[in-house]
Design a protein around this nucleic acid. Structure first.
Lengths: 166, 166
DNA sequence: CCCGTTGAGGAACGATCGTTCTTGACTGAT
DNA sequence: ATCAGTCAAGAACGATCGTTCCTCAACGGG
């Protein structure tokens, strides 16, 4: 019963992933969300409770979709260069912003971020058959490269040194 | 002539470095700054022009002081492990936040950040006598480790593999 | 001694923030 | 046809944002 929804919740959350992945949390206003999500204010609060609720939904969706897809792709990687290229070419804007900007101020975000990073570590460790600590170092390298906007394939120089090793 | 200042400008900027390095730009209000800097609203705007002006001053101070000190320390590093340890133990909170959160929205910030990262790259390249691209990869790794809050000396696993190389 | 100048101290501004309220449109079941 | 229930639409809320204005205190030069 009741009037049917005029918006698709999944679609709205994915749009929120794009917005929150593009600029800081405080840089995305509720007006921006309403304008770009196709969800009206009232429905937004009815569905997600608050701006933070929507942010958490977007973050979890980002991790469940994009990060999960990255981990699946990593499972097929057989060498360090491939693994590093996969991570650095993935769309992890929201994860990166969440880790640097939100995690220190929101422990629920911090927990999600930490779990996602550990999942990436594990995927790399399994795929390359290397210790988890070394995989974590590779993840850190990939995040650092993403952070710099990947200036001219910085990763290749490193992987050329790493590949003969393992 | 005129009434003498009751605050130390350098001291105020250093306090701003601490505030802006601890949370997001929008998470630090002018009221916070006034409360923690010992500078009154009027003097803040008279001296720095705007909140963004103070932020830029703090960022430049952070780069001129902390990053410069890091580069000097790097000049004395003779192996990869030492270089990586120096960067990951440096206090680069403001640089990290600026790179991820402000740089995409403020090209002046982006320019400062890029210059600082290049300076770190160069310091590592010079100290270890390695190509600039490899040094950039090491910088990226260090930033990634900082981003994760350095969970249990992740860097050591990587440097053990890298050291025999160069 | 008094005047011009500069900073301190707050009050106050308009704008925007996240959130809520009110009203009306649309639905399935009675 | 009517009623209860859900959502759309947008006005409106108090709070807080960055910024400005106004008044008084403290100095140096004539």
């Amino acid at each position: 019963m009741g009037r049917p929804r005029a918006f698709d919740e999944d679609e709205a959350v994915r749009a929120a992933v794009g917005l929150f992945g593009g600029r800081a949390y405080d840089g995305v206003s509720v007006d921006d969300l309403v304008a770009h999500l196709g969800v009206h204010r009232n429905s937004l609060y009815k569905t997600f409770g608050s701006k933070r609720g929507l942010y958490l939904a977007a973050l979890r969706r980002h991790l469940a979709d994009d990060v999960r897809r990255l981990c699946d792709a990593l499972a097929a990687a057989s060498d360090t260069a491939t693994a590093l290229r996969l991570v650095t070419s993935a769309d992890l804007g929201l994860l990166l912003l969440a880790a640097v900007e939100r995690a220190p101020a929101d422990e629920e975000v911090a927990a999600e971020v930490e779990a996602a990073l550990l999942a990436i570590d594990q995927a790399i460790a399994d795929a390359l058959a290397i210790p988890a600590e070394l995989a974590a170092a590779l993840t850190a390298t990939a995040l650092g490269i993403l952070l710099r906007g990947n200036p001219g394939g910085v990763g290749t120089a490193l992987t050329q040194r790493l590949d003969p090793l393992h």
